[in-house]
C-alpha cells in the first residue's frame, strides 16, 4: 500500500465502489458464506462487471454470458474441485442443454478436463480428488451417496484424449459395453449393436472385413472412432469428449468433427478442446475456462465474434494460450 492509503484507511473503506479490485479480493476470501447470494445476484451484477475487467484473474468474480438453459440435460451448480490441498475448479455453475454440443476451451491447465471428468465421476479414480457442489442429470444428483457410478457411466459415456482401444479385437472392443451391461439378449443382438455402433461412428465400411483383428492395429483416427463406437454401443445419453482429436492428424480430425455433428442429433455432447477452430466448427455453445474459473459461456458464434469478457477476447485473439 502506498503511504497515502495507510494514512487514510477510513476513507478507502468508505468508498468501496471506487476500488472494485479490493472488493473482489475480499469477496473471494469469504466465498463460502457469499456463495448463495452470489448466484442469485449474478445476472444483475454481470453487466456492471465488464467495466472493471482486466486480465488479472484475481479480479474475476462472476461468469459472464448465458450459463444456463431452459432445456438442461445436465445442471452444474457451484462446483469446486480439489486435488488434496490444491483447488483446481472454483465455483463453476453451468448447464448443458439436451442435444447440444458444448465446447469447453481455455489455456492448458485451466481445469476444463478436470471439470469434464466430474460429469461422469471419472475423478473417483483419483484418490486425492474431492468434488463439492451439485451436478444433476435430468434432476438426479450424480453425487448422491446411493447413486451407482456404473449406471451413471453407462448413461454418460466418455472418449479420451489418447485413443485407448482395449487389447482385443475390434468386435470385442465394441461389444465390451453391451456384454458387461447385459444389453444383448443373443449373439444376433450383439452383432447388430456392434454393426450399428460402428456405422454411427462411420467406421463400419473400413473395418467390416476385419472385425476380429486387434483394435490396436488400426490407425490413430480409426482407433479414436473405434473408441467412439465403443462409447455409443451402450446408447449413453451424454458423451464426454476430452480433446478427442489432439493426438490425430488433420484428416482424421475432420472425420471426427463430422461425426460429432452427426452424433449431436441423438446425443448430448460435451467436448473439451485445445483448438478454438474446432470449437467454432462443432459446438453450439462455448464455455471459456481460465485458471479453474468459468469466465464466459455464450453461443459459439458470439464467443468467437464478440466475446463479452476481456480474458476470452485475449484468449481467442491469441494473447495467451
Amino acid at each position: 500500500m502506498s503511504p497515502a492509503d495507510t494514512a487514510k484507511p477510513a476513507k478507502a473503506a468508505s468508498k468501496p465502489a471506487a476500488k472494485p479490485a479490493v472488493k473482489a479480493a475480499s469477496k473471494a476470501k469469504s466465498k463460502p458464506k457469499a456463495k448463495t447470494a452470489a448466484i442469485k445476484t449474478r445476472k444483475a451484477v454481470a453487466p456492471k462487471i465488464k467495466a472493471a475487467q482486466n486480465l488479472d484473474i484475481a479480479d474475476h468474480q462472476e461468469t459472464v454470458g448465458k450459463s444456463f438453459s431452459d432445456n438442461a440435460k445436465m445442471t452444474m451448480r457451484n462446483i469446486n474441485v480439489y486435488y488434496g490441498d490444491k483447488q483446481a475448479i472454483y465455483d463453476v455453475s453451468i448447464d448443458i442443454a439436451k442435444n447440444e454440443v458444448m465446447a469447453m476451451i481455455g489455456p492448458s491447465g485451466c481445469g476444463k478436463s478436470t471439470f469434464l471428468r466430474t460429469l461422469n465421476r471419472m475423478n473417483d479414480t483419483v484418490e486425492v480428488c474431492r468434488v463439492e457442489g451439485d451436478i444433476c442429470m435430468d434432476g438426479e444428483n450424480l453425487y448422491a451417496p446411493k447413486l451407482d457410478v456404473v449406471e451413471l457411466r453407462a448413461r454418460v459415456g466418455m472418449v479420451f484424449q489418447k485413443p485407448n482401444p482395449f487389447p482385443k479385437s475390434i468386435y470385442e472392443n465394441v461389444a465390451y459395453g453391451p456384454k458387461i451391461h447385459g444389453l444383448a439378449d443373443s449373439r444376433v443382438d450383439l452383432d447388430e449393436i456392434v454393426e450399428n455402433s460402428l456405422r454411427k461412428a462411420s467406421l463400419w465400411e473400413e473395418v467390416k472385413e476385419r472385425l476380429h483383428q486387434p483394435g490396436t492395429g488400426l490407425s490413430g483416427g480409426q482407433q479414436q472412432r473405434l473408441c467412439i463406437a465403443r462409447a455409443i454401443a451402450v446408447s449413453p445419453e451424454v458423451i464426454l469428449m476430452d480433446e478427442p482429436c489432439s493426438a490425430l492428424d488433420p484428416i482424421a480430425t475432420a472425420k471426427i468433427e463430422e461425426l460429432i455433428e452427426e452424433l449431436s442429433e441423438n446425443f448430448t455432447i460435451a467436448i473439451v478442446t485445445h483448438s478454438m477452430q474446432q470449437a467454432a466448427r462443432v459446438s453450439h455453445r462455448t464455455a471459456y475456462f481460465h485458471l479453474g474459473k468459468l469466465i464466459e459461456v455464450n453461443p459459439t458464434e458470439q464467443v468467437f465474434t464478440m466475446p463479452q469478457h476481456q480474458l476470452t477476447e485475449a484468449y481467442i485473439t491469441g494473447r495467451f494460450g
Partner: peptide, 19 residues
C-alpha cells in the same frame, strides 16, 4: 426408447454385478 430400455437392463444387472 432404446436407451430407456438399456437403462432398465443395466439397473437390473446392478445388484448382481455389485455383488
Amino acid at each position: 426408447n432404446k436407451s430407456v430400455d438399456n437403462l432398465s437392463k443395466i439397473k437390473r444387472s446392478l445388484t448382481r454385478r455389485n455383488r
